[in-house]
Design a protein around this nucleic acid. Structure first.
Lengths: 200, 200, 200, 200
DNA sequence: GATGAATGAGCGTTCATTCAT
DNA sequence: AATGAATGAACGCTCATTCAT
């Protein structure tokens, strides 16, 4: 197989995965039939199995591709040695960029990861979640220690609050809308950091 | 059928609906089989159809019962004529109480309402959402006008932010845990109103 | 569930298994569709799954029921302490009785056991084969030692020869034909023991 | 296409058929996928259709090639004008030679011919069987008339007995094992003709 | 001669639902 | 009120086959 053929192959897979991701996000994984994905991609259901092993393996590939990119971004942020507030700003901004680029994958992750992470094949979801939680909690705790953040709040509660607040945005965010992801990130951060009542 | 029999009937329905809600919340509506609900309720799948018309009608009843209670609470708050900040505090506290009492229903609502609201039979979900949005937006706008809230934030974004933040808590909240719903509401409100960086 | 209901259940299973065995024997396991079995049994394909876990579990049940009965018969023979020739006569007669009573199961066993015995779930096929081989070889060897059988023949070859000769009869034997199983056994035994050329 | 190309073509076909026969024999015709044959032959499934019309036509070609060779051998024996016992010895020896040379084809024939012979395209299987049965029955009857064989046995039963005994050996015979086909034939014949009990 | 991508029919199986008892 | 057996539609998937390249 030549490099060009290899690319053609990879491109077709990517195309089909994008279609599948869209349908999974819109209808939910379980409610999505393989025929529906095929309809959307303009081929027959059986033909998908030339490219993928199973419906589940499409899901797995969508989620792991998303998480790989996500962690590539997070890795850079965490390695940069920023202060707690700047780290959180950067992580949130990264997250909104991912929502912008991988909207369907994020939505799928939100809806399905709870159920999936019990399965061995999706163990990386649990790993990722743990890594994510660790990074956030360490950053928040450091921020409390350095008095960048309030000490009267339950850190785990803050973590959940910010985490959910960010990711759930995937359920309404549409790329190409009024706000660019960076602007949304800025407003979210402003709310989280400053609150919605004016500082006198 | 006598009133007493009617009550017994109503109680049995409620019991079965509670069971169903638990399973729907845990597994997702689509991934839940009617047989699984029946197993959990210790009867056979076919027997559920003596009590309910269909699987979907169980879902509908669970969601509308939840929304009825929710609006009973919200109605009192909105009719009380409180100021913007107090209104928001009361609404959020109400919401956490609903999560505490109707956890499964809230979780189902979160996961499924997006898909369901397209169906005629679930039109009340869309209505409720619109009413909810209206109440919040009016309150926030009044707050901005009265300078109780910052004017430099996009009000619709704030609305989504607070809405998501509250409801998504249903996905991790477990009744009987460390924090009572009122305490969680207090911390959430403190974050939303004051932010997580200290006010000097 | 009452004993009667239990029996009704067991009877229905047995009926359906008999139907399935007939189709498996006629078409081969792989070439048999579950719809074909259902047609023959006058119900819909899906309904079979109320009674059985899978197509394969029908096969497993057919084969193990057959082997259980077979070994019940063989057990009696081997425990009877007969001489080598009488033991072989009794085993062969038993085998033809099984062919008479469980014709389809025997035919299925012949055609499919080779492939199936590689699967863990069908390990009992291998066990049974080994037990069968052991019993035959011991009997033949004892016969040679006691000069009831010729010593110039390869015992393993004789074993295969007789084994195959008996079981393969399932492929043409039809219950209710001209010959009763005992008569066929008698003629087979006469050939194997005496040969087809006259003893002067 | 030149004669040389034609030969190359024929050789490739023969190669592919040998591969296919091996897989058919090992897994059964129905359980064999065209892709599995292609894997074994190191090309892609679709490419087989350059050489053959269909999976079934491969099977047909394997079986008819086998039967052609078989009858070439049998024809010589039957035309030689031997006595009944010598004829049977020669036929059995021929059969074991075929098993040695065309093991997979014989095994396929054993397992599949019953089902196939109902199809028009495989009518030659029925013809061959009839021819085979005729030759054997005539030989046996002549033998009984000439007192070379016992007259107290059912001739059709003897026919089935010897036929099955011989062909079923294909299911365990492996070329290159301890016994050469002629030695196996000798022992088989000795059993069939003389029996396994010693002649005093 | 062979590949890669697709087709389309059919398979084993699941599951919401029905209904006589 | 509940059971047990069945229905029928749909699902994920397999596979022989086709065909442009």
């Amino acid at each position: 197989m030549t490099a060009i053929a290899g690319n053609a192959n990879a491109e077709r897979r990517a195309e089909l995965l994008a279609t599948a991701a869209g349908v999974f996000a819109a209808l939910g994984y379980n409610a999505t039939t393989v025929r529906r994905i095929a309809d959307e991609a303009r081929l027959l259901a059986g033909s998908l199995y030339y490219h993928f092993e199973s419906k589940e393996s499409m899901l797995a590939e969508i989620l792991s591709a998303f998480l790989d990119e996500l962690w590539a971004g997070y890795g850079g942020v965490l390695a940069a040695g920023l202060g707690p507030a700047a780290t959180i700003e950067a992580l949130v901004t990264q997250s909104f960029r991912q929502i912008d680029r991988h909207g369907p994958a994020v939505a799928i992750y939100q809806k399905e990861s709870g159920r999936l992470s019990a399965q061995l094949r999706f163990a990386y979801l649990t790993d990722s979640r743990a890594k994510f939680e660790g990074a956030w909690l360490r950053t928040l705790e450091r921020g409390v220690a350095e008095q960048a953040f309030r000490s009267d709040l339950d850190v785990r509660l803050v973590y959940r609050f910010v985490r959910d607040t960010v990711w759930v945005a995937a359920s309404w965010y549409r790329p190409g809308g009024t706000h660019r992801p960076e602007e949304i990130a800025r407003q979210y951060l402003s709310m989280v950091l400053e609150g919605i009542t004016p500082r006198t």
